[in-house]
């Protein structure tokens, strides 16, 4: 049985690059309920920025499409889901390799590597022509003196 989330929020926005900053700020505000350290907050913002930028740059290369970001809190675990209905990734395994990129030179090919190392878990499901769903989880340590 799926554990019931204590809190959640779903945001939907067009794949415009101006929304990269908005998405990571929104995720940071939501995560603030867990009283994360600055370091943890930085990790969450960075991973969200990578996931949302991938959707904006790669999912919809020649058009503006819909990006959905869902944030859920269950206990002290934050789950971030970034979903698009874009072109999809033909070879997810290859796309997750460090330095692999099909983007222009503003992309370093380090997006998935950063998501993987800054969060506790990363799952990427993609179907060419249908879209991509990136699911990341991070446990935020409750600090001493708090329930």
């Amino acid at each position: 049985m799926r554990t019931k989330a204590e809190n959640f929020v779903t945001l939907e926005f067009p794949s415009r690059s101006a929304n990269e900053g908005f998405a990571r700020a929104a995720a940071a505000c939501f995560a603030a309920q867990l009283d994360p350290t600055l370091d943890e907050l930085g990790d969450i913002k960075t991973a969200v920025s990578e996931a949302v930028t991938n959707a904006i740059v790669h999912a919809y290369p020649d058009a503006i499409g819909k990006v959905v970001m869902r944030l859920r809190l269950t206990g002290d675990v934050l789950e971030v889901v970034v979903k698009d209905q874009g072109v999809g990734i033909p070879d997810v395994e290859r796309a997750r390799q460090p330095l692999f990129t099909t983007g222009s030179e503003e992309r370093s090919g380090m997006g998935f590597t950063i998501m993987e190392s800054f969060m506790d878990s990363l799952r990427v499901r993609s179907q060419p022509g249908k879209g991509t769903v990136v699911t990341m989880k991070k446990r935020v340590s409750r600090r001493v003196g708090q329930k």
């Binding site: 930028t53 030179e105 992309r107 370093s108 380090m110 950063i114």
Partner: peptide, 13 residues
């Protein structure tokens, strides 16, 4: 205040 992997690309270039 913040950078993501775009900063890596900027430095390499």
């Amino acid at each position: 205040g913040f950078t993501d992997s775009s900063g890596i690309a900027v430095l390499i270039r």
